[in-house]
């Protein structure tokens, strides 16, 4: 009983501390609601004259996402196999797992900023940022999927005299392929979402123009691009869902 009370008090204190520290103020939010509508009001009616910008930047976002996801997957799959603790000795999988955890801990925007300063503005640094981030996230899923694979059929294959690579090709890959593709689809969906805001730090795509127009107070134009982002992310989610539905 005393334990429950003290847990309740501790959680309450933690919540109070957090809301206090983050200057939480319902009154201020209430007073701000008209301003919120005012903001959306300024975006309407949408100014469709930017449709050419919309089209080119949406395509650029899509291209950035595909290239970044592909590049990431290219490294994530082999690294993920090497990071599976039941397949490789500890001095191989531990450093790789640590590396992937390190990569995951860097926020995507920070990665993008890093690559923008290295290779300049445009979609290319976005591709690099997405790729590096994907290696961290996707590689971990690959490793976990392989670790969870039933080893007995693999042992049975080994017992036929198959070599290591043959066991990977005929035993491991058929067992993990659907989950691998499903993870790739989810990664693509997430990357599409992320790449729409990469423009914030100058790494190209739809986000770049949203912030450009906001800075120039051209609200009606930026509103159109926001709509495009929503549509694109929604389409990406739908595509990933379709892929997953067919596989699992």
């Amino acid at each position: 009983m005393a334990g429950k009370v003290s847990l309740f008090l501790a959680v309450s204190a933690l919540l109070f501390w957090s809301f206090q520290g983050s200057e939480f103020s319902p009154g201020q939010f209430w007073r701000g609601i008209p301003q919120l509508f005012h903001f959306f009001g300024r975006m309407t009616p949408p100014d469709w004259s930017v449709w050419d910008v919309l089209l080119t930047s949406a395509i650029e976002t899509l291209q950035t996402t595909i290239a970044g996801t592909f590049l990431g997957a290219l490294f994530a799959y082999p690294l993920g196999v090497l990071a599976a603790s039941n397949w490789t000795p500890i001095w191989v999988h531990l450093p790789i797992k640590a590396f992937m955890a390190f990569v995951r801990s860097i926020p995507l925007l920070l990665l993008a900023l890093l690559f923008v300063s290295a290779v300049g503005l445009g979609p290319f640094p976005g591709v690099l940022a997405l790729a590096v981030h994907s290696v961290g996230v996707l590689g971990r899923f690959v490793a976990e999927e392989i670790e969870a694979t039933d080893p007995k059929p693999l042992l049975a294959l080994q017992g036929t005299g198959a070599s290591s690579l043959q066991i990977i090709q005929h035993g491991l890959i058929p067992q993990v392929l659907p989950q691998m593709v499903a993870h790739l689809a989810i990664r693509f969906e997430m990357n599409l979402r992320d790449s729409t805001i990469l423009g914030l730090v100058g790494a190209g795509g739809l986000g770049f123009y949203v912030f450009l127009y906001v800075k120039q107070f051209q609200w009606q134009k930026s509103g159109v691009l926001v709509l495009a982002i929503i549509a694109l992310v929604f389409a990406g989610e739908f595509a990933a869902w379709q892929v997953r539905k067919r596989l699992i």
Binding site: K152, P153, A156, L157, G159, H170, G171, Q175, L177, P178
Partner: peptide
């Protein structure tokens, strides 16, 4: 070798 749980590649 034949195993109790067959150990085939199901997919």
């Amino acid at each position: 070798m034949i195993h109790q749980h067959f150990d085939l590649i199901g997919r």
